[in-house]
Design a protein around this nucleic acid. Structure first.
Lengths: 213, 213
DNA sequence: GAATTAATTGAACGTTCGTTTTATTATCGT
DNA sequence: ACGATAATAAAACGAACGTTCAATTAATTC
């Protein structure tokens, strides 16, 4: 009835995070009790409070780190000195790959925002807005240089993000379509949606571009 | 401490539904307590159980009727003997109009599915699938007749629905864009996304189609 | 090997939850 | 006017919730 043999703070905290993401994604934040989470980890509920002072702190940590991860992933693959079509393609590829890879965490970050306190909600939304702003910048540059035909940059950015993020709702690994297939199709849908001129885009990805029209 | 003057079952039930939709949309199903709901209606919690045997019955009723409403709205505006582009345009217009008009109810139907029991979840998903099937049929016909250029009908249908439904996340009435403006933009994005041939579509909506390319 | 620190247990606290029961009053048909 | 029924209030139920606290043991340090 105390410290267990082989117990390790770092390992326990990691297990808590992973179990929490899965449980919240499956049942929702409110529906996940601390006792249930503890049971999943193989620990008593009180032990969770060694790592996260409150349940909301746990949720906030998961969300913040997920948003930071998204941002970092994009910074890492972001092309420098590329034309708008190439930049847009990179954005789409990264977004879809990241969201499929971290389906559960994305679910949490998108669906449980209302369980955050106002100031923490603001923080997460700020991160999200910053990420979306990058897409708007790409779209605007493409529209300005004539690479894209776009009516409303902000609206198009929202539409694209909703469309891409929606992948996590229906995509299941190992079913009809593979990740590269899904990505390729979304890429060509995106390029058509923004009215990308083919000569620009086909230079980067000849095969996909052919099928785009 | 009993029946109040002017009380009316029908009016109370309607008030319960409306308050429930708003509260669940704002705070989530789990976070909405029956006491809070009752207070919003101006009644004691026990009175709610005259109209809905359990909290989940209330949720299920809201969802089922929302899905029925969506289906009915589409049946009502669905064009007969129209080419695929016109049908798709009607689908998009109806979907966006319906979802903007009933933002809160849509939020509930999309976000609270996991609070349903398995068989009720199945029922709602069946309704949703039936509605989405209509879009797939339109896309397939358009692809077969050469009106559209589509790689994957199922995937395109999902992408379009996610894109359109996403409107409720950011759209606020009375802000920068009006409903007709949003609808027009989404319509042209949709037509480009499915690679609609302009001569077909421009016959129905000349102005939008011009701007599409 | 003793002292210190890290990790966890088990029990308990007060609160809130969905729901039930019983009593009470308004409304309506006759 | 009266009996039937519809609509609600008030109080209570047990269960579950997030969280705290004291006790206890494993690991680490010196």
């Amino acid at each position: 009835m105390a410290r267990t043999t082989g117990s390790d703070g770092e390992r326990t905290e990691a297990a808590v995070r992973e179990a929490a993401v899965n449980l919240i994604a499956r049942y929702g934040y409110e529906a996940m009790s601390m006792r249930r989470l503890a049971a999943e980890v193989g620990v008593q509920a009180a032990a969770l409070y060694r790592y996260f002072p409150t349940k909301e702190d746990l949720l906030f940590t998961l969300m913040r780190e997920h948003m930071e991860g998204l941002r970092e992933a994009w910074e890492h693959v972001r092309p420098t000195d590329a034309d708008p079509a190439e930049q847009l393609a990179a954005y789409v590829r990264n977004h879809i790959a990241f969201h499929i890879e971290r389906r559960h965490a994305t679910h949490v970050s998108n669906m449980e925002l209302r369980s955050l306190s106002p100031d923490r909600l603001t923080q997460i939304l700020k991160q999200r807005t910053a990420y979306e702003k990058e897409l708007r910048a790409i779209l605007r540059e493409g529209a300005d240089t004539g690479s894209f035909s776009i009516e409303d940059t902000g609206l198009t950015a929202m539409a694209l993000i909703q469309m891409m993020t929606g992948v996590i709702v229906w995509f299941r690994p190992g079913e009809r379509l593979s990740v590269p297939e899904v990505t390729a199709t979304y890429l060509s849908m995106t390029m058509r949606l923004v009215g990308a001129r083919m000569d620009t885009y086909s230079a980067a990805r000849p095969l996909d571009a052919q099928r785009t029209l």
